[in-house]
Amino acid sequence: MADPPDAKALLEVARETLVALVPQADARHQYTLRMIASAMAIATREIAAPVPAVDESAADAALLARVSSCPAHDVAAQRALHAELVAATRAKVAITDPRALA
């Protein structure tokens, strides 16, 4: 176990410190600082997220195979696939941009 504060707490406080500096920077550097803060927020959420029960990459590959082979007339299969795609994408958005879920 890592010494406290853990990686998530360190990233959070580092990001807060960075965000406090934004108003003091000129316009071009404000944009860069905001990008850094955004990257730190994503990393913070990612390391805090529970480890997925399934291999996401393999699950996506399986979904791709099913989307690619799904007949255009099979509405029921498409609806089932759509529901699975929504669930898988929601989990990713929760890390990269949770505001988009609102």
């Binding site: 007949p71 255009a72 498409q78 759509h82 994408t89 929601r90 990713k92 958005v93 990269t96 941009d97």
Partner: peptide, 17 residues
Amino acid sequence: LPALEWRLLAMTGDTFG
């Protein structure tokens, strides 16, 4: 990408055919 895809799923609806 995930947020763009999230929106795409809403825009296309639950069937593609």
